[in-house]
Computed example of a mutant assay.
Amino acid sequence: MICHRDKDGQPLELMEWARLREDMEYRVVAEDRVAGQLVRTVWEGIDDGVRVGCMWANGISSDGENFRTVWEGYWPCTQDEATAAHRETVETVRAKQSTAVE
């Protein structure tokens, strides 16, 4: 059964979840620009009861293209975990950029 949750993991009614999903200020928990790429981590708020659903998502966008997901097979359960994973993604992008420049 799918449950909708806020950033603190508290259950939400469907309409409250939908309202929060439209609020990008609420959804974005971390955002960094690295060498022309935007790395963004957002709250999704979906708990499917199997793997804590998609509570958080992380993606990279270059030059305004659609975001491509970074965390395949890894789904943070808390905002702290999502923020830490975001920092790791930023460091990975920075490392790839410095390698590409060399």
Rank of each mutant, 00 (worst) to 15 (best):
E91S: 00
A30C: 04
A57W: 08
C54F: 10
T78K: 04
F67W: 02
A84P: 00
Q10M: 14
E102G: 09
E16T: 15
G45P: 02
L14G: 11
E31M: 13
S61L: 02
V52H: 14
R40G: 01
Q10R: 15
M55T: 00
Q37R: 05
A30H: 03
E102K: 05
V34K: 08
A95L: 03
D80S: 10
T89E: 02
T89F: 03
E102N: 13
E88D: 14
G59I: 06
D32F: 08
S61E: 06
A35K: 01
D6P: 01
Q79R: 14
W17Y: 05
E44T: 10
Q79Y: 06
G9T: 07
G73P: 00
Y74D: 11
Q79D: 12
T89A: 05
R5E: 11
V70E: 13
A82T: 03
W71E: 02
V29Q: 04
E25M: 09
E65S: 06
L12R: 08
L20E: 11
E81H: 10
E13V: 14
A57S: 15
R21Y: 10
A82Q: 01
G45K: 01
T41W: 06
M24V: 11
W17A: 00
V70A: 11
R51L: 12
F67S: 00
R5S: 09
R68K: 11
A18M: 15
P11Q: 15
I60Y: 05
W75Y: 14
V34Y: 06
